[in-house]
Design a protein around this nucleic acid. Structure first.
Lengths: 137, 137
DNA sequence: CTACCATCTGTAGGAACTACAGACTCAACC
DNA sequence: GGTTGAGTCTGTAGTTCCTACAGATGGTAG
């Protein structure tokens, strides 16, 4: 059975060494075997770190990932639970996109006004000083 | 001249009391006068907190806001500088939207696969365990 | 033998707040 | 005058997801 050191695990997963140790500390990764003082990882660890990193790329929180890992390794793959986590996360992602699009619109308008240069004051400062709440835009 | 306590400032700006004190601590707000031990704010403070909150809603960092406040109160309104901050921030917002849309696509596809229910394993777990990098999707 | 790299533990920092604990002040009510 | 309750005060610690040290040790190459 192939065993690798933390540096090699880091290289294979493109995950920072410190981050791997952090994941271990918070219980996302099992405590690895040791060769002397050094951590000794197996292929299962490579897969697990890959899993975590991919889930992070999709914006799952570490707590969500912990739940997903539990499901992934459960005997009876509770797929419905996983679906719920993903669906709820999808809702959050969509809400965030909506937020950002609103920001984008205001920012783009402001920068355009700057470029037009036909206003009295600085358009950005004016926007931020305006009495209207941005939330209502 | 009207002066108000921190609670009233908080109500008028819909900004948490603790957050106002935090802004003062990090120098975003000037140290207010005191009536005895209590902070005493004026209308300029109301405007300033509003400004900060609006900028935060647009996703500016506190450091960016600090710069914007400097510009807003400078004699020679350095509008060009403000434009640059806004334009750079706009680029970041757009990049973030692109990221989130990628996430959204993968998540939506996965949830759809769950609902179709014609796969062998759990689609989400399968996606996260896949060898392909999400970054390349 | 020494240089060098990898790894170890433990702790602190960053961003933008939020949440206490425990003390104090002030106005109102009886 | 006493007491209740709300408001405020300071100071510190927690949140999330890492990242960055410092200082010690391990193993190997020249």
């Amino acid at each position: 059975m192939e065993t690798i050191a933390i540096g090699e695990l880091s290289r294979r997963t493109r995950c920072n060494i410190e981050t791997i140790r952090y994941y271990e500390r918070i219980g996302l990764l099992p405590m690895p075997a040791r060769r002397g003082r050094y951590r000794s990882f197996g292929l299962a660890d490579v897969a697990r770190v890959h899993f975590v990193r991919r889930a992070r790329e999709l914006g799952f929180t570490l707590d969500e990932i912990r739940a997903l890992l539990g499901i992934a390794t459960a005997e009876d793959m509770a797929c419905g639970d996983a679906r719920e986590i993903a669906a709820s996360h999808l809702r959050q992602v969509r809400a965030r996109i909506t937020d950002l699009r609103r920001m984008e619109r205001v920012l783009a308008d402001t920068v355009r006004a700057c470029d037009a240069g036909d206003q009295v004051g600085c358009p950005l400062i004016t926007t931020l000083s305006a009495t209207a709440q941005l939330g209502t835009i």
